[in-house]
């Protein structure tokens, strides 16, 4: 028997994903968190940096997802801006295709900018 169902990004089935839920007026009928769609959370730690993936959580709608993200992922001053996106909208590369996708880059070290002498004044390269 299959007790654990593991979903990969972009792989969230519609029947479990609660895709019909779009606002606070239409909460999921089951009322359990398991019926709420999964959201991916991106946090920007400070002005000028990129939003980085922080994790995922369940929420009934986008507003709740932002607030849950605030409570779960920014309690220790990790960020000052939050993006959330429903996990089912993320298309992920297939791990089985990793070979053809990434391996060809392995022997092309000339793509790294490591053949230049940088002046000391240049930081953060």
């Amino acid at each position: 028997m299959n007790y654990i169902r593991k979903f990969y990004y972009g792989d969230i089935p519609e029947d479990k994903g609660g895709a019909e839920i779009s606002d606070s007026k239409n909460p999921p009928s089951g009322g359990r968190g398991a019926d709420w769609p999964l959201w991916e959370v991106f946090i920007r730690s400070k002005q000028g940096l990129d939003h980085k993936h922080a994790g995922s959580l369940h929420a009934a709608d986008a507003q709740m997802a932002i607030e849950n993200a605030r409570d779960v992922y920014t309690r220790r001053m990790e960020g000052e801006s939050i993006w959330v996106v429903e996990s089912k909208y993320i298309t992920a590369s297939n791990p089985e295709e990793a070979g053809e996708l990434y391996d060809p880059a392995k022997d092309k070290i000339y793509r790294h900018p490591s053949f230049y002498n940088l002046p000391d004044e240049v930081n953060l390269m």
Partner: peptide, 12 residues
């Protein structure tokens, strides 16, 4: 809490 996220929210 009814779900993990709300458990954290209320205890926050």
């Amino acid at each position: 809490g009814p779900v993990l996220e709300q458990d954290i929210a209320i205890t926050n």
